[in-house]
Amino acid sequence: MMRAVVATHNAHKVAELQRILSAALPGLELVAYDGPSPVEDGDSFAANALIKARAAAEHTGLVAIADDSGISVDALGGAPGIDSAHYSGSRDDAANVRHLLANLADVPAENRAAQFTCAAALVDPTRADDTREHVELGVWPGRVAFEVAGGGGFGYDPVFIPEGLAVTSAELTADEKNAISHRARAFAALATVMRERYGA
């Protein structure tokens, strides 16, 4: 059994990662992080994910995994991007969604392309070589809806319509979302790396 700390205080993310990783890594036990939150001042999803994973690894001495993710909208020049979590000036999901929809109010359907991006980071404090840190990226293309729909998920899920679907990601079941989401793609790639390294 391998133990790793998940570098987040977001219960939704912990539960989602447990569902995603348990199938790929049945020998992995994830533990919650109870340490201080670092300042996420990176200039990319990957940089911010590493900042969080480094802090958790240093605080606990365990292998740490973390993610940083957000939505990027073509018509807004890639915004909100790494500012997704506080796009409205707060960390309130509903306020962020309202702000996004307001900024896209005059944008027609054909110009509402968007993508979710997730950077999944691994930091192993027991290693001192170039395998100490690793990052995988997952991208989930789609478009922004005109209104909120669905009661599942969190963040921008109620207004994100994945490519090839006619419903928002908040209208998918947890299993459906976890099979195709940006986070699932990033952590599936990271799970492969962890399985090769640790045999978890």
Score class of each variant (00 low, 15 high):
His9Met: 06
His182Phe: 10
Val123Asn: 00
Asp92Pro: 04
Glu136Ser: 12
Arg185Lys: 15
Gly152His: 10
Asp74Tyr: 07
Val167His: 09
Ile71Ser: 05
Ala49Pro: 13
Ala119Asn: 03
Pro108Ser: 12
Ala85Phe: 08
Gly152Tyr: 03
Asn10Trp: 10
Ser181Pro: 06
His59Cys: 09
Val193His: 10
Val31Pro: 00
Glu110Ala: 14
Phe154Tyr: 12
Asp124Lys: 01
Ala128Phe: 14
Thr173Pro: 04
Arg132Ile: 04
Ala149Met: 03
Leu190Ala: 03
Arg185Tyr: 12
Gly35Lys: 01
Ala121Ser: 04
Ala23Ser: 13
Gly150Phe: 01
Pro38Asn: 10
Ala85Arg: 12
Arg19Asn: 15
Arg19Ser: 15
Leu50Val: 11
Ala113Pro: 03
Ala75His: 08
Ser90Arg: 10
Val167Phe: 07
Phe45Met: 11
Pro38Val: 07
Leu62Gly: 07
Glu171Met: 11
Glu196Thr: 15
Val159Leu: 05
His134Leu: 10
Asn111Thr: 10
Asp68Phe: 04
Thr117Gln: 11
Ser37Met: 12
Asn111Gln: 14
Asp43Leu: 15
Ala121Gln: 00
Ile20Pro: 01
Glu171Val: 02
Ser181Thr: 08
Arg112Ser: 09
Val139Pro: 08
Pro108Cys: 09
Ser84Asp: 09
His59Lys: 07
Val97Tyr: 05
Ala174Asn: 10
His12Cys: 09
Asp93Gly: 09
Pro158Leu: 02
Thr168Met: 02
Asp67Gln: 08
Lys13His: 08
Leu25Gln: 04
Leu76Asp: 13
Val63Leu: 15
Ser181Ile: 03
Ile161His: 01
Ala32Tyr: 08
Tyr87Ser: 09
Thr168Ser: 13
Ala149Gln: 12
His134Cys: 13
